[in-house]
Design a protein around this nucleic acid. Structure first.
Length: 481
RNA sequence: GGCCCCUUCGUCUAGUGGUCCAGGACAUCAGGUUCUCAUCCUGAAGAUCGCGGGUUCGAACCCCGCAGGGGUCACCA
Protein backbone atom coordinates (compact mmCIF):
# COMPACT_ATOMS: atom_id res chain seq x y z
CA UNK A 1 0.00 0.00 0.00
CA UNK A 2 1.44 3.32 -1.00
CA UNK A 3 0.72 6.48 0.82
CA UNK A 4 -0.61 9.05 -1.61
CA UNK A 5 1.66 12.01 -2.10
CA UNK A 6 0.46 14.69 0.22
CA UNK A 7 0.65 17.19 -2.58
CA UNK A 8 -2.09 15.29 -4.43
CA UNK A 9 -4.68 16.63 -2.03
CA UNK A 10 -6.68 19.36 -3.69
CA UNK A 11 -9.91 20.75 -2.34
CA UNK A 12 -12.04 23.60 -3.49
CA UNK A 13 -14.69 26.07 -2.58
CA UNK A 14 -17.06 26.56 -5.48
CA UNK A 15 -19.74 29.07 -4.58
CA UNK A 16 -22.21 30.62 -6.91
CA UNK A 17 -22.17 34.40 -6.59
CA UNK A 18 -25.77 34.72 -5.47
CA UNK A 19 -25.34 36.62 -2.24
CA UNK A 20 -23.31 37.20 0.86
CA UNK A 21 -21.59 34.23 2.45
CA UNK A 22 -22.99 33.05 5.76
CA UNK A 23 -21.88 30.60 8.41
CA UNK A 24 -23.44 27.52 6.87
CA UNK A 25 -21.62 27.82 3.59
CA UNK A 26 -18.37 28.79 5.23
CA UNK A 27 -18.34 25.86 7.61
CA UNK A 28 -18.25 23.44 4.69
CA UNK A 29 -15.44 25.54 3.30
CA UNK A 30 -13.51 25.52 6.56
CA UNK A 31 -13.45 21.74 6.43
CA UNK A 32 -12.25 21.76 2.83
CA UNK A 33 -9.56 24.29 3.66
CA UNK A 34 -8.38 22.33 6.70
CA UNK A 35 -8.11 19.15 4.64
CA UNK A 36 -5.94 20.93 2.09
CA UNK A 37 -3.74 22.66 4.68
CA UNK A 38 -3.27 19.56 6.73
CA UNK A 39 -2.31 17.47 3.70
CA UNK A 40 -0.06 20.22 2.42
CA UNK A 41 -2.25 20.25 -0.63
CA UNK A 42 -3.95 23.05 -2.48
CA UNK A 43 -7.16 24.90 -1.86
CA UNK A 44 -8.94 26.40 -4.84
CA UNK A 45 -11.58 29.01 -5.29
CA UNK A 46 -13.84 28.57 -8.27
CA UNK A 47 -16.78 30.77 -9.09
CA UNK A 48 -19.82 28.91 -10.38
CA UNK A 49 -21.71 31.59 -12.22
CA UNK A 50 -23.68 29.62 -14.76
CA UNK A 51 -27.04 31.00 -13.71
CA UNK A 52 -26.95 34.61 -14.75
CA UNK A 53 -30.49 35.18 -13.47
CA UNK A 54 -29.51 34.57 -9.89
CA UNK A 55 -26.25 36.39 -9.93
CA UNK A 56 -25.92 39.21 -7.44
CA UNK A 57 -23.64 42.16 -8.06
CA UNK A 58 -20.75 42.31 -5.64
CA UNK A 59 -21.17 38.73 -4.54
CA UNK A 60 -17.78 37.62 -5.83
CA UNK A 61 -16.18 40.44 -3.93
CA UNK A 62 -18.08 39.48 -0.80
CA UNK A 63 -16.98 35.87 -1.17
CA UNK A 64 -13.34 36.84 -1.49
CA UNK A 65 -13.52 39.36 1.33
CA UNK A 66 -15.14 36.79 3.60
CA UNK A 67 -12.48 34.19 2.88
CA UNK A 68 -9.68 36.69 3.29
CA UNK A 69 -11.04 37.93 6.56
CA UNK A 70 -11.10 34.40 7.93
CA UNK A 71 -7.65 33.70 6.58
CA UNK A 72 -8.96 30.97 4.28
CA UNK A 73 -6.50 31.78 1.54
CA UNK A 74 -6.69 30.00 -1.80
CA UNK A 75 -3.79 28.80 -3.90
CA UNK A 76 -5.58 29.07 -7.22
CA UNK A 77 -8.55 31.21 -8.09
CA UNK A 78 -10.12 33.76 -10.39
CA UNK A 79 -8.01 36.64 -9.14
CA UNK A 80 -4.68 34.84 -9.04
CA UNK A 81 -4.95 32.24 -11.77
CA UNK A 82 -3.23 28.87 -11.61
CA UNK A 83 -2.40 25.88 -13.71
CA UNK A 84 -6.03 25.18 -14.55
CA UNK A 85 -7.25 28.70 -15.17
CA UNK A 86 -9.68 30.21 -15.71
CA UNK A 87 -11.45 29.65 -12.39
CA UNK A 88 -14.70 31.35 -13.27
CA UNK A 89 -17.14 29.09 -15.01
CA UNK A 90 -18.55 31.72 -17.30
CA UNK A 91 -15.06 31.93 -18.77
CA UNK A 92 -14.92 28.20 -19.36
CA UNK A 93 -18.03 27.81 -21.48
CA UNK A 94 -16.06 26.47 -24.44
CA UNK A 95 -14.78 23.61 -22.34
CA UNK A 96 -18.28 22.57 -21.28
CA UNK A 97 -19.56 22.95 -24.84
CA UNK A 98 -16.87 20.62 -26.10
CA UNK A 99 -17.73 17.97 -23.54
CA UNK A 100 -21.40 18.37 -24.29
CA UNK A 101 -20.83 18.12 -28.02
CA UNK A 102 -18.80 14.96 -27.57
CA UNK A 103 -21.50 13.39 -25.43
CA UNK A 104 -24.14 14.41 -27.92
CA UNK A 105 -22.27 13.00 -30.89
CA UNK A 106 -21.68 9.70 -29.19
CA UNK A 107 -25.35 9.42 -28.29
CA UNK A 108 -24.72 9.85 -24.58
CA UNK A 109 -26.67 13.09 -24.50
CA UNK A 110 -29.80 14.07 -26.35
CA UNK A 111 -31.99 17.07 -26.99
CA UNK A 112 -35.01 17.44 -24.75
CA UNK A 113 -38.09 18.16 -26.90
CA UNK A 114 -40.47 19.05 -24.06
CA UNK A 115 -41.50 22.56 -23.29
CA UNK A 116 -41.18 23.86 -19.75
CA UNK A 117 -44.97 23.73 -19.44
CA UNK A 118 -45.20 20.15 -20.60
CA UNK A 119 -42.58 19.10 -18.12
CA UNK A 120 -44.28 20.99 -15.37
CA UNK A 121 -47.52 19.12 -16.08
CA UNK A 122 -45.76 15.79 -15.97
CA UNK A 123 -44.10 16.75 -12.73
CA UNK A 124 -47.34 17.80 -11.13
CA UNK A 125 -49.02 14.61 -12.20
CA UNK A 126 -46.29 12.59 -10.58
CA UNK A 127 -46.47 14.69 -7.46
CA UNK A 128 -50.26 14.31 -7.26
CA UNK A 129 -49.80 10.55 -7.46
CA UNK A 130 -47.21 10.89 -4.68
CA UNK A 131 -44.58 9.43 -6.90
CA UNK A 132 -41.12 10.74 -7.56
CA UNK A 133 -40.83 12.41 -10.93
CA UNK A 134 -38.47 10.68 -13.30
CA UNK A 135 -37.79 12.28 -16.63
CA UNK A 136 -36.49 9.06 -18.09
CA UNK A 137 -40.00 7.59 -17.88
CA UNK A 138 -40.85 10.06 -20.64
CA UNK A 139 -37.56 9.91 -22.47
CA UNK A 140 -38.25 10.57 -26.16
CA UNK A 141 -37.59 7.55 -28.38
CA UNK A 142 -36.43 9.65 -31.27
CA UNK A 143 -35.08 12.86 -29.85
CA UNK A 144 -34.79 15.75 -32.28
CA UNK A 145 -31.44 16.98 -33.55
CA UNK A 146 -29.88 19.30 -30.99
CA UNK A 147 -29.78 22.78 -32.44
CA UNK A 148 -28.88 24.53 -29.25
CA UNK A 149 -32.36 25.85 -28.59
CA UNK A 150 -33.39 22.81 -26.60
CA UNK A 151 -31.89 21.68 -23.31
CA UNK A 152 -29.40 18.86 -23.63
CA UNK A 153 -29.79 15.93 -21.28
CA UNK A 154 -27.27 13.29 -20.38
CA UNK A 155 -28.48 9.71 -20.77
CA UNK A 156 -27.87 7.79 -17.57
CA UNK A 157 -28.30 4.09 -16.94
CA UNK A 158 -30.70 3.58 -14.05
CA UNK A 159 -28.96 1.28 -11.64
CA UNK A 160 -28.08 0.99 -8.01
CA UNK A 161 -24.99 2.72 -6.66
CA UNK A 162 -22.97 1.99 -3.57
CA UNK A 163 -20.15 4.28 -2.63
CA UNK A 164 -18.12 5.39 0.32
CA UNK A 165 -18.67 8.86 1.62
CA UNK A 166 -15.80 10.06 3.80
CA UNK A 167 -18.23 11.39 6.38
CA UNK A 168 -21.45 9.44 5.91
CA UNK A 169 -19.83 6.06 5.38
CA UNK A 170 -21.07 3.44 2.93
CA UNK A 171 -24.20 4.51 1.15
CA UNK A 172 -26.40 2.67 -1.28
CA UNK A 173 -29.08 4.28 -3.39
CA UNK A 174 -31.30 2.58 -5.92
CA UNK A 175 -31.99 3.22 -9.60
CA UNK A 176 -34.87 5.51 -8.70
CA UNK A 177 -32.24 8.12 -7.84
CA UNK A 178 -30.83 8.14 -11.34
CA UNK A 179 -32.39 10.39 -13.91
CA UNK A 180 -31.34 12.11 -17.12
CA UNK A 181 -30.42 15.58 -15.97
CA UNK A 182 -29.91 18.67 -18.06
CA UNK A 183 -26.30 19.48 -18.84
CA UNK A 184 -26.88 22.43 -21.18
CA UNK A 185 -29.82 24.75 -20.65
CA UNK A 186 -31.83 26.20 -23.50
CA UNK A 187 -30.05 29.50 -22.92
CA UNK A 188 -26.84 27.74 -23.86
CA UNK A 189 -25.37 27.79 -20.37
CA UNK A 190 -24.27 24.56 -18.75
CA UNK A 191 -25.68 23.48 -15.42
CA UNK A 192 -23.92 23.10 -12.12
CA UNK A 193 -24.52 19.36 -12.24
CA UNK A 194 -22.49 19.17 -15.41
CA UNK A 195 -19.67 21.65 -15.11
CA UNK A 196 -18.68 20.99 -11.53
CA UNK A 197 -17.97 17.41 -12.59
CA UNK A 198 -15.81 18.55 -15.48
CA UNK A 199 -14.01 21.18 -13.46
CA UNK A 200 -13.34 18.98 -10.48
CA UNK A 201 -11.89 16.44 -12.89
CA UNK A 202 -9.80 18.90 -14.88
CA UNK A 203 -8.64 20.73 -11.78
CA UNK A 204 -7.65 17.42 -10.17
CA UNK A 205 -9.81 17.89 -7.10
CA UNK A 206 -9.23 15.00 -4.71
CA UNK A 207 -11.90 15.64 -2.06
CA UNK A 208 -15.22 17.32 -2.68
CA UNK A 209 -16.98 18.65 0.39
CA UNK A 210 -20.65 19.27 -0.09
CA UNK A 211 -23.44 20.07 2.26
CA UNK A 212 -26.09 17.54 2.94
CA UNK A 213 -28.65 18.69 0.43
CA UNK A 214 -26.47 17.24 -2.30
CA UNK A 215 -26.29 13.77 -0.85
CA UNK A 216 -29.14 12.36 -2.88
CA UNK A 217 -27.64 13.83 -6.05
CA UNK A 218 -24.42 11.91 -5.69
CA UNK A 219 -25.64 8.76 -7.53
CA UNK A 220 -26.42 10.98 -10.50
CA UNK A 221 -22.94 12.46 -10.34
CA UNK A 222 -21.45 8.99 -10.11
CA UNK A 223 -23.45 7.84 -13.10
CA UNK A 224 -22.38 10.91 -15.06
CA UNK A 225 -18.73 10.24 -14.26
CA UNK A 226 -19.19 6.77 -15.71
CA UNK A 227 -20.80 8.00 -18.87
CA UNK A 228 -18.10 10.60 -19.29
CA UNK A 229 -15.40 8.08 -18.61
CA UNK A 230 -13.72 9.94 -15.77
CA UNK A 231 -12.98 9.00 -12.14
CA UNK A 232 -14.94 10.43 -9.26
CA UNK A 233 -13.27 12.34 -6.42
CA UNK A 234 -13.75 11.37 -2.80
CA UNK A 235 -17.12 12.64 -1.66
CA UNK A 236 -17.46 14.22 1.75
CA UNK A 237 -20.98 15.10 2.77
CA UNK A 238 -20.96 17.59 5.57
CA UNK A 239 -23.89 17.92 7.99
CA UNK A 240 -26.00 21.06 7.93
CA UNK A 241 -25.59 24.12 10.13
CA UNK A 242 -28.95 24.97 11.65
CA UNK A 243 -30.42 28.30 12.77
CA UNK A 244 -31.40 29.03 16.40
CA UNK A 245 -34.64 27.09 16.05
CA UNK A 246 -32.66 23.96 15.25
CA UNK A 247 -35.25 23.14 12.61
CA UNK A 248 -33.89 24.82 9.54
CA UNK A 249 -30.67 25.07 7.74
CA UNK A 250 -28.97 28.40 8.10
CA UNK A 251 -30.01 30.45 5.11
CA UNK A 252 -29.85 34.00 4.01
CA UNK A 253 -33.57 34.12 3.40
CA UNK A 254 -34.29 33.19 6.99
CA UNK A 255 -32.07 35.80 8.47
CA UNK A 256 -28.63 34.25 8.66
CA UNK A 257 -26.08 37.00 9.12
CA UNK A 258 -23.48 37.41 6.42
CA UNK A 259 -20.18 36.26 7.89
CA UNK A 260 -18.74 39.73 7.41
CA UNK A 261 -21.33 41.12 9.80
CA UNK A 262 -19.24 39.50 12.50
CA UNK A 263 -16.19 41.38 11.30
CA UNK A 264 -18.24 44.57 11.66
CA UNK A 265 -19.04 43.60 15.25
CA UNK A 266 -15.40 43.01 15.98
CA UNK A 267 -15.10 39.26 16.11
CA UNK A 268 -11.72 37.66 15.67
CA UNK A 269 -11.25 35.45 12.62
CA UNK A 270 -9.51 32.87 14.76
CA UNK A 271 -12.52 32.67 17.07
CA UNK A 272 -14.94 32.40 14.16
CA UNK A 273 -12.83 29.64 12.65
CA UNK A 274 -12.67 27.84 15.98
CA UNK A 275 -16.41 28.16 16.31
CA UNK A 276 -17.27 27.02 12.80
CA UNK A 277 -14.85 24.11 12.86
CA UNK A 278 -16.35 22.81 16.09
CA UNK A 279 -19.88 22.72 14.77
CA UNK A 280 -19.88 19.13 13.69
CA UNK A 281 -16.31 18.31 14.50
CA UNK A 282 -14.22 17.79 17.63
CA UNK A 283 -10.90 16.17 18.26
CA UNK A 284 -12.19 13.68 20.83
CA UNK A 285 -10.51 15.39 23.76
CA UNK A 286 -12.00 18.00 26.05
CA UNK A 287 -10.25 20.85 24.30
CA UNK A 288 -12.64 23.64 23.34
CA UNK A 289 -10.34 26.43 22.26
CA UNK A 290 -8.23 25.82 19.19
CA UNK A 291 -5.81 28.11 17.43
CA UNK A 292 -5.77 27.97 13.66
CA UNK A 293 -2.58 25.92 13.72
CA UNK A 294 -4.11 23.50 16.17
CA UNK A 295 -7.14 23.09 13.93
CA UNK A 296 -4.91 22.30 10.98
CA UNK A 297 -2.93 19.85 13.05
CA UNK A 298 -5.81 18.08 14.76
CA UNK A 299 -8.57 18.06 12.19
CA UNK A 300 -9.69 14.61 11.08
CA UNK A 301 -12.25 13.84 8.41
CA UNK A 302 -13.27 10.70 10.30
CA UNK A 303 -14.34 12.80 13.25
CA UNK A 304 -16.81 14.95 11.35
CA UNK A 305 -20.30 14.41 12.75
CA UNK A 306 -23.19 13.20 10.67
CA UNK A 307 -25.82 15.18 12.49
CA UNK A 308 -26.58 18.85 12.07
CA UNK A 309 -25.54 21.49 14.57
CA UNK A 310 -26.96 24.82 15.61
CA UNK A 311 -25.09 28.07 15.01
CA UNK A 312 -25.06 29.04 18.68
CA UNK A 313 -24.21 32.74 18.98
CA UNK A 314 -23.79 32.35 22.72
CA UNK A 315 -20.95 29.93 22.26
CA UNK A 316 -19.43 32.07 19.55
CA UNK A 317 -19.46 35.02 21.93
CA UNK A 318 -17.70 33.06 24.64
CA UNK A 319 -15.16 31.71 22.21
CA UNK A 320 -14.44 35.21 20.94
CA UNK A 321 -13.84 36.49 24.46
CA UNK A 322 -11.56 33.56 25.11
CA UNK A 323 -9.57 34.22 21.94
CA UNK A 324 -9.30 37.89 22.81
CA UNK A 325 -7.97 37.07 26.27
CA UNK A 326 -5.33 34.80 24.77
CA UNK A 327 -4.02 37.48 22.47
CA UNK A 328 -0.90 39.41 23.52
CA UNK A 329 -1.68 43.10 23.97
CA UNK A 330 0.18 44.28 20.90
CA UNK A 331 -1.61 41.81 18.66
CA UNK A 332 -4.93 42.68 20.19
CA UNK A 333 -4.21 46.34 19.61
CA UNK A 334 -3.52 45.65 15.96
CA UNK A 335 -6.76 43.70 15.60
CA UNK A 336 -8.84 46.38 17.26
CA UNK A 337 -8.10 48.82 14.46
CA UNK A 338 -10.79 51.48 14.17
CA UNK A 339 -13.15 50.20 16.81
CA UNK A 340 -12.16 52.99 19.20
CA UNK A 341 -14.72 55.61 20.20
CA UNK A 342 -14.69 58.77 18.11
CA UNK A 343 -13.42 60.62 21.18
CA UNK A 344 -10.18 58.63 20.93
CA UNK A 345 -9.22 60.33 17.70
CA UNK A 346 -5.81 61.84 18.13
CA UNK A 347 -4.97 59.89 21.26
CA UNK A 348 -1.54 58.34 21.04
CA UNK A 349 -0.87 54.64 20.63
CA UNK A 350 0.75 54.13 24.01
CA UNK A 351 -2.20 55.62 25.82
CA UNK A 352 -4.69 53.61 23.79
CA UNK A 353 -2.69 50.46 24.43
CA UNK A 354 -2.73 51.15 28.12
CA UNK A 355 -6.49 51.65 28.02
CA UNK A 356 -6.87 48.47 26.03
CA UNK A 357 -4.92 46.52 28.60
CA UNK A 358 -7.43 47.60 31.23
CA UNK A 359 -10.41 46.25 29.31
CA UNK A 360 -8.59 43.29 27.77
CA UNK A 361 -10.23 40.61 29.85
CA UNK A 362 -13.73 42.05 29.77
CA UNK A 363 -13.91 42.61 26.04
CA UNK A 364 -16.16 40.14 24.23
CA UNK A 365 -16.16 41.79 20.82
CA UNK A 366 -14.65 45.02 19.61
CA UNK A 367 -17.90 46.88 19.00
CA UNK A 368 -18.14 47.05 22.80
CA UNK A 369 -14.96 49.07 22.96
CA UNK A 370 -16.46 52.57 22.66
CA UNK A 371 -18.83 52.10 25.59
CA UNK A 372 -16.12 50.41 27.62
CA UNK A 373 -13.48 53.08 27.11
CA UNK A 374 -15.10 56.38 26.13
CA UNK A 375 -14.40 58.05 29.46
CA UNK A 376 -10.69 57.54 29.00
CA UNK A 377 -10.88 60.04 26.18
CA UNK A 378 -13.73 62.36 27.13
CA UNK A 379 -14.98 63.85 30.35
CA UNK A 380 -18.21 62.30 31.60
CA UNK A 381 -21.22 64.61 31.62
CA UNK A 382 -22.69 65.78 34.89
CA UNK A 383 -25.94 64.18 33.85
CA UNK A 384 -24.24 60.82 33.44
CA UNK A 385 -22.68 61.08 36.84
CA UNK A 386 -25.91 62.05 38.55
CA UNK A 387 -27.87 59.32 36.82
CA UNK A 388 -25.37 56.66 37.76
CA UNK A 389 -25.26 57.80 41.37
CA UNK A 390 -29.02 57.40 41.35
CA UNK A 391 -28.66 53.92 39.91
CA UNK A 392 -26.15 52.85 42.56
CA UNK A 393 -27.68 51.35 45.68
CA UNK A 394 -24.90 52.49 47.99
CA UNK A 395 -24.43 55.95 46.56
CA UNK A 396 -28.00 57.12 46.27
CA UNK A 397 -28.36 56.85 50.05
CA UNK A 398 -25.60 59.38 50.65
CA UNK A 399 -26.77 62.86 51.51
CA UNK A 400 -25.12 65.78 49.82
CA UNK A 401 -23.05 66.76 52.87
CA UNK A 402 -21.61 63.28 53.22
CA UNK A 403 -20.90 63.13 49.53
CA UNK A 404 -19.06 66.44 49.66
CA UNK A 405 -17.06 65.29 52.65
CA UNK A 406 -15.86 62.20 50.80
CA UNK A 407 -15.14 64.11 47.63
CA UNK A 408 -13.09 66.87 49.16
CA UNK A 409 -11.13 64.43 51.29
CA UNK A 410 -10.36 62.47 48.16
CA UNK A 411 -9.18 65.55 46.33
CA UNK A 412 -6.92 66.52 49.18
CA UNK A 413 -5.48 63.04 49.48
CA UNK A 414 -4.88 62.56 45.77
CA UNK A 415 -3.26 65.95 45.39
CA UNK A 416 -0.37 64.41 47.31
CA UNK A 417 -0.18 61.25 45.23
CA UNK A 418 2.38 60.55 42.53
CA UNK A 419 -0.44 58.65 40.78
CA UNK A 420 1.38 55.39 40.51
CA UNK A 421 -0.99 52.52 40.95
CA UNK A 422 0.73 51.42 44.12
CA UNK A 423 0.63 54.86 45.70
CA UNK A 424 -3.01 55.40 44.72
CA UNK A 425 -3.98 52.14 46.33
CA UNK A 426 -2.00 52.90 49.47
CA UNK A 427 -3.44 56.39 49.90
CA UNK A 428 -7.04 55.54 49.05
CA UNK A 429 -7.12 52.52 51.35
CA UNK A 430 -5.77 54.68 54.12
CA UNK A 431 -8.45 57.22 53.33
CA UNK A 432 -11.16 54.59 53.64
CA UNK A 433 -9.96 53.93 57.18
CA UNK A 434 -9.66 57.60 58.02
CA UNK A 435 -13.11 58.46 56.78
CA UNK A 436 -14.63 55.37 58.35
CA UNK A 437 -16.57 54.40 55.27
CA UNK A 438 -16.81 51.13 53.42
CA UNK A 439 -14.38 50.79 50.52
CA UNK A 440 -17.34 50.01 48.29
CA UNK A 441 -18.85 53.41 49.03
CA UNK A 442 -15.81 55.60 48.56
CA UNK A 443 -14.44 53.71 45.59
CA UNK A 444 -17.81 53.58 43.86
CA UNK A 445 -18.24 57.30 44.34
CA UNK A 446 -14.84 58.08 42.89
CA UNK A 447 -15.49 55.72 40.03
CA UNK A 448 -18.78 57.33 39.09
CA UNK A 449 -17.37 60.81 39.29
CA UNK A 450 -14.33 60.17 37.12
CA UNK A 451 -15.93 57.75 34.63
CA UNK A 452 -19.62 58.62 34.63
CA UNK A 453 -20.31 54.93 34.98
CA UNK A 454 -20.78 52.28 37.63
CA UNK A 455 -18.91 49.81 35.49
CA UNK A 456 -15.26 50.35 34.78
CA UNK A 457 -11.85 48.74 35.17
CA UNK A 458 -10.20 48.68 38.58
CA UNK A 459 -10.16 52.09 40.24
CA UNK A 460 -6.42 52.44 40.81
CA UNK A 461 -5.54 51.42 37.26
CA UNK A 462 -8.16 53.76 35.92
CA UNK A 463 -6.89 56.72 37.94
CA UNK A 464 -3.27 55.95 37.09
CA UNK A 465 -4.12 55.77 33.41
CA UNK A 466 -6.12 58.99 33.40
CA UNK A 467 -3.27 60.70 35.20
CA UNK A 468 -3.14 63.22 37.96
CA UNK A 469 -4.25 66.30 36.12
CA UNK A 470 -7.30 64.77 34.46
CA UNK A 471 -8.34 62.86 37.55
CA UNK A 472 -8.17 65.85 39.86
CA UNK A 473 -10.03 67.98 37.39
CA UNK A 474 -12.83 65.45 37.16
CA UNK A 475 -12.97 65.08 40.92
CA UNK A 476 -13.62 68.77 41.27
CA UNK A 477 -16.86 68.58 39.31
CA UNK A 478 -19.89 70.28 40.78
CA UNK A 479 -22.91 68.05 40.92
CA UNK A 480 -26.11 70.05 40.65
CA UNK A 481 -29.11 68.36 42.24
C1' G B 1 -45.43 9.50 -1.47
C1' G B 2 -40.29 7.09 -3.06
C1' C B 3 -35.28 7.35 -1.67
C1' C B 4 -31.34 9.04 1.66
C1' C B 5 -29.41 11.07 6.19
C1' C B 6 -30.00 12.20 11.33
C1' U B 7 -31.79 11.41 16.78
C1' U B 8 -26.92 11.53 24.16
C1' C B 9 -28.34 17.64 29.25
C1' G B 10 -31.63 24.08 26.41
C1' U B 11 -26.92 24.21 22.98
C1' C B 12 -21.95 22.05 21.08
C1' U B 13 -20.48 17.35 22.21
C1' A B 14 -17.44 12.66 24.79
C1' G B 15 -18.79 7.79 24.40
C1' U B 16 -17.57 1.86 19.40
C1' G B 17 -20.54 -4.21 25.14
C1' G B 18 -18.77 -3.92 31.63
C1' U B 19 -14.34 1.42 34.44
C1' C B 20 -21.41 5.39 32.37
C1' C B 21 -27.59 5.13 37.68
C1' A B 22 -23.48 8.79 31.15
C1' G B 23 -18.04 12.88 31.15
C1' G B 24 -16.63 17.99 29.38
C1' A B 25 -17.83 22.92 27.46
C1' C B 26 -21.44 27.11 26.51
C1' A B 27 -25.71 29.11 28.69
C1' U B 28 -28.39 29.29 33.65
C1' C B 29 -28.24 29.55 39.06
C1' A B 30 -25.48 29.79 43.83
C1' G B 31 -20.95 30.76 46.41
C1' G B 32 -15.70 32.49 46.69
C1' U B 33 -11.84 36.30 45.28
C1' U B 34 -12.93 41.73 44.94
C1' C B 35 -13.76 48.84 44.81
C1' U B 36 -18.07 47.88 40.28
C1' C B 37 -18.03 44.95 35.87
C1' A B 38 -15.22 41.25 33.83
C1' U B 39 -11.61 37.47 34.59
C1' C B 40 -10.49 33.40 37.68
C1' C B 41 -11.99 29.39 41.23
C1' U B 42 -15.76 26.16 43.58
C1' G B 43 -20.46 24.14 43.47
C1' A B 44 -25.69 23.24 41.84
C1' A B 45 -29.28 22.20 38.50
C1' G B 46 -29.80 19.98 33.84
C1' A B 47 -30.00 13.65 29.50
C1' U B 48 -35.25 7.59 32.00
C1' C B 49 -28.87 8.10 25.91
C1' G B 50 -36.20 9.40 20.46
C1' C B 51 -39.68 4.94 21.45
C1' G B 52 -40.57 -0.47 21.40
C1' G B 53 -38.70 -5.22 20.91
C1' G B 54 -34.49 -8.58 20.54
C1' U B 55 -29.21 -10.55 21.23
C1' U B 56 -26.13 -10.88 25.72
C1' C B 57 -24.40 -12.60 32.29
C1' G B 58 -24.30 -7.32 30.91
C1' A B 59 -26.27 -2.22 25.77
C1' A B 60 -26.05 4.77 24.87
C1' C B 61 -22.95 1.34 22.23
C1' C B 62 -24.98 -4.86 18.25
C1' C B 63 -29.83 -6.45 15.46
C1' C B 64 -35.05 -5.54 14.03
C1' G B 65 -39.28 -2.46 14.00
C1' C B 66 -41.51 2.24 14.81
C1' A B 67 -41.72 7.46 15.57
C1' G B 68 -39.90 12.34 14.95
C1' G B 69 -36.76 15.75 12.35
C1' G B 70 -34.05 17.07 7.95
C1' G B 71 -32.80 16.58 2.77
C1' U B 72 -34.08 15.35 -2.22
C1' C B 73 -37.36 14.22 -6.43
C1' A B 74 -35.53 22.32 -10.98
C1' C B 75 -33.58 24.53 -17.86
C1' C B 76 -30.90 26.65 -8.78
C1' A B 77 -26.61 25.64 -6.98
Amino acid sequence: MTTPKSSSIRTRFAPSPTGALHGGTIRTTVFAWLIAKQGQGKFLLRIEDTDQKREVAGAVQNIMDSLRWLGLGWDEGPDKGGEYAPYTQSERLDIYKQWAQKLYESGKAYADPYSTEELQTLRETAQAAKKPFLYRDYRPENPPAWDGSQPLRIRLEPKSYTWHDGVMGDITMGPEMIDDFIIIKSDGFPTYNFCHIIDDYLMKISHVTRSQEFLSSIPKFLAAHEVMGIPSPINLTVPPVLDETGKRKLSKRLGAKPILAYRELGYLPSAMLNFLATIGWNDGTEQEIFSIDELIEKFKIERIQKSGGIFDEQRLLWLNGAHIRRLPLDELYAHVGDFWPAEANGANDDYKKQVLSLVHERLKFFAELPDLTRFFFAEPTVQNIVENIGANKQLRKLDVAERDRLMSATQTTLADSDFSQADLELKLRALVDALEVKPGVLFSLIRVVITGSNVAPGLFETLATLGKETSLKRLSVTLAE
